[in-house]
Design a protein around this nucleic acid. Sequence first.
DNA 1: CTGAAAGCGCTTACAG
DNA 2: CTGAAAGCGCTTACAG
Lengths: 327, 327
Amino acid sequence: MNKTISDIAQMAGVAKSTVSRFLNGGSVSEDTRQKIERIIKQYNYVPNTFAQSLKAKKTSIIGTVVPRLDSFATSQTLIGIDEELRSNQYQMLIANTSQDMQREIDAIYDFARQKVSGIILLAAEVTEAHLKAVEDIRIPVLLVGQQHEQLHSLVHNDDQAGYEMGRYVVEQGHRKIVYIGVSEKDRAVGIYRKQGFQRAIAECGGCEVKYYETSFKMSEAIVTAEAILKEITPTIIVGATDNIALGVMKIAFSNKIRIPQDLSVTGFGGYDITEMIHPTLTTVKYHYLQAGKVAANHIIRLVKGESVEERTTLDVELIPRESVDKL
Amino acid sequence: MNKTISDIAQMAGVAKSTVSRFLNGGSVSEDTRQKIERIIKQYNYVPNTFAQSLKAKKTSIIGTVVPRLDSFATSQTLIGIDEELRSNQYQMLIANTSQDMQREIDAIYDFARQKVSGIILLAAEVTEAHLKAVEDIRIPVLLVGQQHEQLHSLVHNDDQAGYEMGRYVVEQGHRKIVYIGVSEKDRAVGIYRKQGFQRAIAECGGCEVKYYETSFKMSEAIVTAEAILKEITPTIIVGATDNIALGVMKIAFSNKIRIPQDLSVTGFGGYDITEMIHPTLTTVKYHYLQAGKVAANHIIRLVKGESVEERTTLDVELIPRESVDKL
DNA sequence: CTGAAAGCGCTTACAG
DNA sequence: CTGAAAGCGCTTACAG
C-alpha cells in the first residue's frame, strides 16, 4: 500500500541511499534532487518512522507522566510542554496514571521501551521506586513540581508563595487564622508551602494559626472545613490549594456565612475559575504554562547532553481579590 | 547497552526464533521455556517496539486528536478513552491542536505516519480537509462530539439536551427568555442543541426567546451578557455551555443582579465546578467519561474490523439546581 | 555526487 | 518443538 524508500528510489532511477541522503539533507545533485522530489510529491511518500527509529536508535519523543488529566495545573503545564516541544520538532507522549503510583513507575519503564528521548515527570511524591526506575532506564528525566537532590527538577517557589500569603493575611489584620494543608508526602505543597506561611506568621507576633489537613479533593475539603467551622470561628481560612479554598467557600455559602464579611478565604494556584466566581478568590498565581515551556526546554537540553541547572525555581505572584476582608 | 533477542537466544542456547515464539505465546518445551525465562528476567530484557512494529506493520496505539487540553469535557473524555484503551492493551497518544484546524489535519497525517491503529477525533467542525485526510490515511477514524454521514461518530444527544432544558425553563414559568448560543459551525452545539431548545419553546405557546451568539470563551460570554443585560431584562438566560453560563453569572454578580431572584441562569455540560459555586448551576449533564470509554471501545472494534454502528448517541441528563427560580 | 552492502531487532513461514 | 533464512524499511559507512 504505502510506498517505501525502495519504490521511490526505483521510480526515480536512483539508489535507496541517495533518496535517504536527500531526505536527510545530504548533498545531491540538482538533477536528482528534482527527480526525487517529484516522485515523493506524486506518491505522497512519508518515511516509516519505525524503520527510522530502529536504525537511529532514538526518537524525538518526550514522554510526560502525569498523575491526573483533570486538573488545571496539569492541563496548563501540558500545554506549555507541548507548545515548546513542538516548536523544537519534538513530540509529546502523555501517560496518565490516575494517581496510581505503580502506574507511574510502569509508565517510566514503558516510555523507556518506546525509546523516548527524555521524560518529564509530574509527580506528587518521589519514592525509592521512582529513583530506581530513573536509574534503570538511563534516559534523561526532569521532575516538575517537586524537587529531589538526585534529580533535575523544576519547581514553583512554594516557600515564597506561602510566605507572601502569610504576610498578606497578617497585613490585612487577621489574627484568628486557620490553615488547611495537605499531606507532607507531597513535599512541595505539604511542607514548603506551609513552611513559608509559618515563617510569615512567626514574624507577626501575636498571630494564632490552627493547622488542619485534608486531601486535594474539593469534596473532602468541604467535609474538613465544615468540621472546623463547627468548632471555631476564624476570621480567615487559608486553603493550601484553590480547590480547598473553593471547598471552604462552598460550605460557607451553605451555612450562610458571608464571604468575606463573616469569613475570609484564600487559596493557592491561580486557577482560571478563581476569578470567575463570586466573590473572586485571593490566591497566589502559579505560572503553569511557563513551567511547561521551561520544562520542555530543559529536557531538550538534557537530551542533547547540554548542561542544565540541577534545580530551577519559578516565581509566583500574590493576587489580592475580593475574598479577603481588611479588618 | 540493551540486550537484543539475539543476545538472549545465544545465552539461552536457542535460536532467536524460539525466543520470539516464547515471547509471543507460541509453544515451546518446558525446558527451553525455563531457560529463556531465566535469562530474560536476569537481563531485564524488553523487546524493541520499533523492530516489532516494523515487522508487524501495526501498533497497538490509538491516536486522539483534541482541540484543547484545558477543558473539562476534553479531560474527562480523555480519561475515559485512556482507561478503556489501557484495559484492552492499547495505548493512547494525544495530539493537542490548540484549536488550530491546520494542526488538526496535520495531526491526522502524523498519526498515520506513526502507524497508529486507529484515530479518535474530537473536533468542533468537520471540513473537506478532514474528510480527505481520513480518506487518505486508510486507518479507522471515530468522530466524537460531532456527527457526519461519512464518518463513524459518537455524539451526546444535543437535541434532547436542548429540548429538556427548554421544557424545564418553560415549566418553571419563564417567558422572557434569552438564549446565548455559539457559531453554527459547531453543529452539535450551535445547531442541534439550539434546535432542541427551540422545539420545546415552540410547544409552549406564548414564550418569547431572544437568541444571541458568543464564543466558547468565558471572557467573551461576559461581554456578550453585559451588552444583553443593558438592553433587556429577561427572567432567565440560557447559556449554550456551562462556561457561558458562568460568564453570565459573573457579570450578574458584578452588576448586583441576584441569582436566581433577579435572574435565572442555566448551562449545558455538567462541569464539576457547576455544583461547587454559589448558587449551584442548573445544567444538563453530559457523560464525558462514559463517552470516552465508548469511543475507545468503538475504535478498537473498528481496528479489529468488527462492525460498529455508524452513529451512537449518548443520553444526557437535566440537573435542576439553585440557579433557576420558579416564577 | 552516487550506489552496493551491511545491519538495526524483530517476526514469520518453512523445513526438519 | 526447534532453527536457518528472509525480510520489514530505513541509515550509514565505504568505495568509486
